[in-house]
Structures are given as C-alpha cells and as structure tokens.
Computed example of a mutant assay.
Amino acid sequence: MSNSSLESIARKMRHLDIATFTTVTDDGALGSRPMSNNGDVEYDGNSYYFTLDSARMVSDIRRNPKVSLGFEGLDGLHIAVTGQAEVIQDKAAFEAHWVPDLDNWFDHGVDTPGLALLKVKAARVKYWQGEDSGEWVA
C-alpha cells in the first residue's frame, strides 16, 4: 500500500455520499449504521453528518469518540476512514453544512430541537480499487 495525498484520495471520494458509520457502544461492541454526508463531499479530512442528540450514536461518541467510516463506489472503490468524532450543537455550524434535502428529515431545519452535527476528523484513510491501493495518515 503506497502513501497517498489527502487530495488524491479526496478526488476518489468526490461522489461518495453514504458511509457505514461505526461507533463503539456502551458495552464495547461495535454499532454500525448508514449515514449520508448530504453531498458535503469536498473532503478535507473532515466528514459531517446530521442526526438528533437522542440517537444512540451520539451517546456512543460522547463516551468514546473513536469511529470508523466505510465508503464503497460503483467502480470497485473501497475507502476506510478511522478517526475521532465530536458532537457539535452550534447553529452556525449547522448552517454551514445544511442542504435543502435535509428538510425531509428535520422538520424545523437548523432550528430542529435536539439537532446535532457529527464531525469526523480522519486520522487515517485507506483506499483499495482493484490492484491500486493507498493510504493517508494525518
């Protein structure tokens, strides 16, 4: 596996939206669920996901911020991200990452009670695509 730049991996990720978002649960098990980055795909090592503060993944992150993200592209691309997550509850941050499609999930937009934004800061990103593979480490 060769060293890669974050920019070269970001180009590969440009059209990937859905990630398998994995957290460590309260009993030490792993919990995974599909999450959309809502088209916020200009990847700079940070990923953003909206949820509600009452979601189990939020309590998982508050207890243990180590997470992983898994992406898969139609062209045989697989990307694994490991990093640290944080829970953001700041309206300015919500507005910076909001897209109109989110109104389908959150009735009051950025004013939805209990809205939370999850930020995942990558520590390591690995990709595989056929014979090609690479890795970026923060």
Rank of each mutant, 00 (worst) to 15 (best):
F71G: 03
F71A: 02
G73Y: 02
G73H: 01
G73L: 02
L74M: 04
L74H: 04
L77E: 01
H78W: 15
H78D: 12
I79Q: 11
A80F: 03
A80N: 08
V81C: 06
V81H: 06
V81F: 05
A85P: 05
A85T: 04
V87G: 05
I88H: 10
Q89F: 07
K91A: 13
K91C: 09
K91F: 12
A92F: 13
A96K: 05
A96C: 00
W98H: 07
W98I: 07
W98D: 06
V99K: 13
P100W: 03
P100R: 02
L102C: 10
L102M: 14
N104H: 15
N104T: 15
W105F: 12
F106V: 09
H108L: 15
H108D: 15
V110W: 02
D111R: 07
T112L: 07
T112S: 12
P113G: 10
G114R: 02
G114M: 04
L115G: 15
L117I: 13
L118V: 14
L118G: 10
L118N: 11
L118D: 13
L118F: 12
K121V: 13
A122F: 06
R124M: 08
R124F: 03
R124N: 07
K126R: 14
W128K: 09
E131M: 14
D132I: 00
D132W: 00
S133A: 07
E135W: 09
